[in-house]
Nucleic acid binder design. Structure first.
Lengths: 340, 340
DNA sequence: GTCAAGTGGGAGAGCGCTCTTACCCAAGCC
DNA sequence: GGCTTGGGTAAGAGCGCTCTCCCACTTGAC
């Protein structure tokens, strides 16, 4: 494995000069630069990350932390639900793509209990990664505070539940609700209803509020509303309750796609055609929406763009050498398919 | 940040002794050991990975490589399909869990074209990771050979298409086909058919063969058979062809769950009740199977266990200091739900 | 022509760790 | 009693890199 020393010898200059050329730090005479570059090519030199990291205090890696409540020991699957969600892969894939051009690599960590949270914190505190990208299912995850305490740059996916000086990206959830409302009205729905996510989750609340606001502006003072918990089964059950509450409902906005599938199932079971009798709009544009019929009209978060922005923010902070507090909010988009 | 030096000073011994205690390499007098351990606790010392890695030539990280054909620039999603598959998260989550107790961390890399494959190879070749865990959708991925060439330990998920001296884990695909056949016969199916995956894919072929073999043993000399390509749409289309080919079919084994969803959709559209008129069995136990009605009976790969075994194999090879060639085959399990 | 300022390159000191070598000292042996 | 033996510790040499001096040289102004 060739070292700086080897390159220096071949190029007939000192180690320091080679280092300067490789890192482009200080001015080097063009002629020397060419010689060095040739020597690098000739020897096949690649900098040793460990050695560089030892002196620069930079690792060239960032931690991608997947966090959330401890999983239930259901079946033989012992992982936080988010890992089994296609959303996870989309986010992570986008991270990889965004970091690669900067020669930064993501180290994956899972934090699902106090012990693992502590490990993650210590990993960062001791400089094993230059920063953290946190994807958590829990808007007031204790890990957020712990990461702040390490002093490393950190960027979250989704706004934290409580005000904390930390960077994040998020989608304009309320606007998503508004898009759904407008679409339903446009289709001619006269009796819109809603199946919201758990109202303790800020995102779920915003989607609901945006939806109801938009409807109120068009004269719908009262919107029958039931609450689910983002699972298929809760979607089935919530839809059943909604039908009991408002039998004449002809359009439903559902807090996420998985629940929307459940809702459609209930509608089918009760003999209501989708979208002709009842139109359904989901949220997320997860792949389940295209793997069933009717295909699901949904509100899409630009997940890949959001993840790319997280990476960009983080690298900026890492370069600056200290955490900053910024945010970016992305506009959701209505993806019209068959269900509404 | 405390260093070995600091600990040594507090404990009143030399750096070397502290190092010995921390790494448990050579015998140290019990009394001294206690003193050192106390000093470690008092200072909050944690070894610096970069410094250690510089001298040991070990990084304490392994590359988790997701590979496959270059994705189509469809919509604004530019990622290999596998990343958006829940399967990916299950595998990766299991890696993290298995590596963590050994203080090894996974670095995620995506290789989807020649350029990125080259980068991954170079990353490993230059010792930035101690080994590689490869999850590829392409059984004769060129990356396999490239990884072998780096001389780093490598373990694959799924047997490579061509004989190559490399370690892998796999599921007994043929046994999965057999399980499906037995289940259908047990239900009383008289006219079993099959929608296979692409026959160029070894796993798809084995599933088909296992299924047909088991049926042949029970007198079903001829099994109507059509081919799909693992997508929902191809499942819909293949099922339609199968119905045309064999209108009396009353049980179908489908090469994966996503196609099975498509098949069920076609059956429903043609007025065949599932499972009463036609029973359907999928393969994978992906989450889509529980997000629709009827829920899908399927053949489950023990993905988490398989991934854990990959990690175990890799660590063993890393410890041994050189690649080895071993394999482990896991038995699939039938998960009986509503569709068969 | 002289001197100050500016520019490019070299020397060398570490970064924090491991590991080999050498040393010390107590116990065992003839 | 002097010697070996061997466990246990200290000393110090790097691992490959960056970065801060510092020196040599060029340039421009007076």
């Amino acid at each position: 494995m060739p070292t700086l020393e080897d390159v220096a010898r071949v190029a007939g200059v000192s180690r320091a000069t080679v280092s300067r050329v490789v890192n482009g730090k200080r001015k080097v005479a063009p002629a020397v630069q060419v010689t060095v570059l040739e020597a690098v090519a000739a020897t096949g030199y690649v900098p040793n990350r460990a050695a560089r990291s030892l002196v620069t205090r930079r690792t060239g890696t960032v931690a991608v932390i997947v966090s959330g409540a401890e999983p239930e020991p259901e079946d033989d699957l012992y992982l936080p639900g988010i890992l089994a969600d296609p959303f996870f892969g989309r986010v992570v894939g986008s991270f990889v793509r965004s970091l690669r051009p900067h020669d930064v690599h993501p180290v994956l960590m899972v934090a699902d209990n106090d012990e693992t949270r502590r490990q993650v914190e210590s990993y960062l505190r001791f400089g094993n990664a230059d920063g953290a990208l946190l994807v958590t299912t829990d808007a007031d995850d204790p890990l957020i505070e712990q990461l702040m305490a390490t002093g490393r740059p950190t960027v979250l996916f989704a706004r934290p539940a409580h005000p904390i000086p930390v960077s994040y990206v998020d989608v304009a959830n309320a606007d998503g609700g508004r898009l759904a409302a407008e679409r339903l009205l446009e289709r001619g729905c006269r009796h819109p209803g809603v199946v919201s996510g758990p109202l303790g989750v800020p995102a779920a609340r915003s989607r609901l509020d945006g939806y109801c606001d938009a409807l109120a502006r068009r004269g719908h003072a009262y919107v029958p509303q039931v609450e689910g918990n983002f699972t298929f089964e809760s979607g089935e059950a919530a839809m059943a309750r909604l039908l009991d509450l408002a039998p004449d409902v002809d359009g439903v906005f559902v807090g996420n796609d998985v629940m929307a599938q459940g809702a459609i199932q209930t509608l089918r079971a009760r003999g209501r055609a989708v979208p002709d009798d009842v139109a359904v709009i989901g949220f997320d544009d997860s792949s389940v929406g295209t793997l069933s019929r009717p295909t699901l009209t949904t509100v899409r978060q630009p997940v890949e763009e959001m993840a790319a922005e997280m990476a960009r923010m983080l690298l900026e902070q890492v370069d600056a050498g200290e955490p900053a507090v910024t945010s970016a909010i992305f506009e959701p988009r209505l993806v019209v398919r068959e269900s509404a």
